[in-house]
Design a protein around this nucleic acid. Structure first.
Lengths: 222, 222, 222, 222
DNA sequence: AATGAATGAGTGTTCATTCAT
DNA sequence: CATGAATGAACACTCATTCAT
């Protein structure tokens, strides 16, 4: 019955921030991340979120349209701010290759710093094709576009192979990072996620097979 | 309330398969794939599955312990048979590189042939960290181990770089394929998923950056 | 939905007794007593009874109209045979007082010999006012009438006080025995129920208060 | 699945009682008595109780743990207040015999005043041996203990025969009253239940058989 | 007669959402 | 703005009963 569309938090900003606090809006959103990460979206009750946030059930509805809007807002707001962060960070870097490295680093660092958030991004985000379609065509594709632009810039700069499809390269890049995060979540080891940046980049940049230089020429790749 | 463990369909085969039919078990499982792919697991009702399968609600419970068991059985049975299929297909191939290529091809071909099944695998599989933990530590890791073994064999055979971490390479490989599937599901284009095999492999095998063989050309990779 | 009336086993005696056995009818009825005593009527499934009897679920319906009929038949048949038994046993006794004593003895002995049967009689019999009304106006009142006749005979014979209401005396008598059985069921002590016959009779016959003439006379009756 | 223990209504009093009303808790409990008496516990739906109480289905669960808790609460709360009532009433009476008479009177009067409540106590209370065991070892035995203490006091005071087993006398006393109530429920005659107090007591106190000295001594007791 | 797979009506319970205070 | 008691629609699961074999 629940639909995910339309909502958008921006429609109703009752109080950006009461007093000096962070604002109930953010408090509730943070509580939702914690609760959703713990039990999963469908197994979480709005009253769980309310209790975690220290407010009454009804208060949640003063800041969010409905339960779906909570999940939607988490994803959208977090990703929005992440994209801004990434853009800012890579702007001063002149080399597309350096930019791509920075994106990978920020990606793993941000999610590796907050397991609950990572869980929501990796697991809870996929709660129906409907949601994903809605989401992927809006927010996520903005991120993917950003990556693709860097790759294309790299090709123009001669840093990346001109014969690879930048759209596919983007998916490979994102998919590799995504899988690293998923695995890190499931294997509750203490090893920091960010430690994987260089090994993953090395593989993505140089591939599985030894360089032809290692011999003389690369007769048949694929 | 939901538990995913233990169940295993094999425990209760009330009717192996009447006549030459496919058997109610398979009919119901197939209906579940269709329904789950259409509405998502949590938004699907058991009675939807029953109707799709052409049986009464109660009949579902003659073959499956509960709703969770339906999802669990889909994943487990499909993946089991896929792994067997892959093992059989790569056994005669002597080159690990050829084996890895075959795995990629089968992976994308199988899911690309059945969008509903792909949806369930990519989206519905992630229903709570609990489910994923249970699942990833059992079935999925069997598949990932298989991939890792091929990569390690390739390293020993000199086909793959010895200085890459096989575990990470496995994740990059799987993550890349996984993302291709996810994207294919969401962009309902007609382009067959299997068409992506070679481009993806090219990137994974040879990387983003031009070969040093291009001696003069690209002096600075990273 | 279930109604208890009408049924009556006598309507359909499919097989009085197959071979030399006791007959499936009795086997199933006995199984029902066991199962109902163990879990209670409403918590017992017809399939539990069938399994206990070693027959298929459907077979139960060849001998009994429905689940209600099982309970109804247990009560009716057991009570019928008990009443016949009692009539036979007290017929030769000339003294109503001796007859009443014999009734008490048989009552406690029969139920004390078979705890499961006792449980069904004491507990399961009361599964709705409807059932009890149906039952009490038919079978049970036959038993109560028998008791009342003995008491009235005792009054005519001068063995019982003429100034007590025989209908009320009957209820006191039956209620006392009934409570003994209920207590015996709940306190799973090993002490045989029949051991209570004399103490109970003493109280019923001579009352709580000392006889006025007790001064010298009645040292200990019984 | 049904559990009767633990619950205790006192654990969750969401609304003590709005204004001068009786409070939803009591309203629902009273509705449950009515509905259970009408159709029996197992044939009653929670929604029937809700409708009778004039509240939504879900509201029942704000005041009671589950359906079982409704039945359990009825029995416990009613019996608790009854026992308090009895203790208060007999405290000022010096003679144990007068106390026993008062208990009998209150017992029949309370249940005779409210047929629905009587039905629940006599019929619905016996819902599986489990329930009875749970219940009889806690609440009911408190009442039976009270009776037994009075009887023992009467023996010490010389008002009751010293040679009767007080535990058995208690059961006979309670069983007699209980049967009077059961019969009154089933025979829907208008005759007030309380009218049976003296005839029953006469029988219990003086027994079925004429006093040996009845000749002259006890012409008419009671 | 006997079977047991199939049926599908029936219900206790949950929980997102509302709204009077 | 906040509250949290009240609502009632929604649904997984059970099990008495049937009937083709």
């Amino acid at each position: 019955m629940a639909r995910l569309v339309a909502s958008r938090t921006a429609d109703k900003p009752p109080a950006p921030a009461s007093r000096g606090e962070n604002g109930k809006h953010d408090t509730i959103l943070r509580a939702a991340v914690t609760v959703f990460a713990r039990n999963g979206y469908f197994n979480s009750k709005v009253s769980d979120v309310a209790r975690e946030a220290g407010v009454a059930d009804g208060t949640v509805y003063l800041y969010f349209k409905n339960k779906d809007d909570l999940l939607f807002s988490i994803i959208t707001e977090m990703l929005d701010s992440f994209i801004v962060h990434v853009r800012t960070a890579i702007a001063p870097l002149s080399s597309p290759l350096a930019q791509l490295r920075e994106i990978a680093r920020l990606h793993l660092e941000m999610l590796g710093r907050d397991r609950d958030l990572a869980v929501v991004f990796e697991v809870e985000i996929r709660h129906s094709t409907k949601f994903m379609e809605e989401f992927s065509t809006k927010k996520l594709s903005e991120y993917l576009d950003l990556i693709q632009q860097v790759i294309e810039a790299g090709q123009r700069a001669g840093e990346f192979r001109p014969d690879i499809n930048p759209r596919i390269a983007t998916k490979v890049f994102f998919g590799a990072l995504d899988e690293m995060v998923t695995n890190w979540i499931l294997s509750r080891r203490g090893k920091p996620l960010a430690a994987a940046v260089e090994p993953v980049l090395d593989i993505l940049l140089h591939g599985f097979v030894p360089h032809p230089a290692s011999v003389a020429a690369s007769p048949t790749k694929e």
